[in-house]
């Protein structure tokens, strides 16, 4: 088994071209998944590529279309960066604890593809794009297409996530709700992010994404299309209908953190709250 620390992105891509490896950036998920008994090294069953030292992947910058967040930028750096989209900043600020945020990264969160990954909810909601690079070129995949299931993502073994790209767009209002088991250092039982815009008295943009309530984050473009074009009053009048419809796109489970009844009820309560927020234009 090879453990490799590349000197550059190019070096990393060369390594991946010939090795099916775990990629470790912050390691805050990987080191837990591969944990061994105390005092013993983690149990990796494949080669490992450590990329946290690659400063060229650490940049956060913007161009006309996107805010680009480099693969090794830590959640703490993202939280403190002026270009970070507001909702992402809010979500990042509630991930785990400060010490975890000093190491964790956005690609790590989405590549780990846990149903409870908080930043994945924001990736879905903001139509984020995962930028994958290999020796053969660049591939851009929408976040919601990138995640295939629990711990399953659309990454070829020769590819490295080099950036998460957030399309630049403005909207009128938003919401981030993380329901954890305590105020800090907790894994979400339910998380919901939403945003909307109103144009000429009509809802011109409506989006809601749910975390921890299904095997992957859930967002329904069909329901969004159904809502877009309605007046605020029409949305309010049909509030319960949409709460019910949204409750059908999620399928929460019982686990050691909560139960399905609670997750479903809270997801519905938050959906209702958001619909009222949009309907009342707050």
């Amino acid at each position: 088994m090879v453990k490799y620390i590349p000197a550059s992105k190019e070096d990393a891509l060369n390594f991946l071209a010939s090795h099916d490896a775990y990629i470790v950036a912050g390691g805050t998920d990987m080191m837990v998944l591969k944990r061994n008994a105390a005092g013993l090294l983690p149990k990796f069953d494949k080669d490992v590529l450590y990329i946290s030292n690659l400063n060229e992947l650490n940049k956060i910058y913007e161009d006309k279309e996107y805010i680009h967040i480099g693969a090794t930028a830590t959640l703490d750096e993202i939280y403190n960066h002026p270009l970070t989209p507001k909702l992402l900043k809010e979500a990042v600020g509630e991930v785990a604890s400060i010490n975890i945020r000093h190491f964790a990264t956005l690609p790590g969160n989405i590549a780990n593809a846990s149903p409870a990954g908080d930043t994945i909810v924001i990736d879905y909601l903001l139509d984020a794009i995962v930028k994958l690079e290999s020796k053969n070129g660049v591939r851009l995949v929408k976040a919601e297409n990138f995640v295939l299931g629990v711990r399953k993502v659309d990454r070829r073994s020769d590819e490295l996530i080099t950036e998460i790209m957030f399309p630049r767009f403005s909207y009128d209002g938003d919401m981030w709700y993380k329901v954890g088991s305590r105020k800090a250092d907790s894994i979400s039982k339910v998380s919901v992010a939403g945003l909307y815009s109103i144009t000429d008295g009509k809802i011109s943009k409506f989006a809601l994404a749910f975390g921890s309530t299904a095997v992957t984050v859930r967002r329904s473009h069909e329901l969004e299309k159904e809502i877009e074009g309605l007046t605020q009053k029409e949305l309010l009048d049909r509030c319960e209908e949409f709460v019910e419809k949204y409750s059908k796109i999620i399928s929460p489970i019982d686990d050691q953190r909560s139960n399905k009844e609670y997750r479903l009820m809270v997801a519905k309560n938050i959906t209702r709250k958001f619909i009222k927020q949009v309907g009342e234009g707050k």
Partner: peptide
């Protein structure tokens, strides 16, 4: 026991 670590066995933090 379903809660096997301090990730899932929730004791109050300083923030709580």
């Amino acid at each position: 026991f379903r809660q096997k670590g301090l990730t899932d066995y929730i004791v109050p933090t300083a923030v709580d």
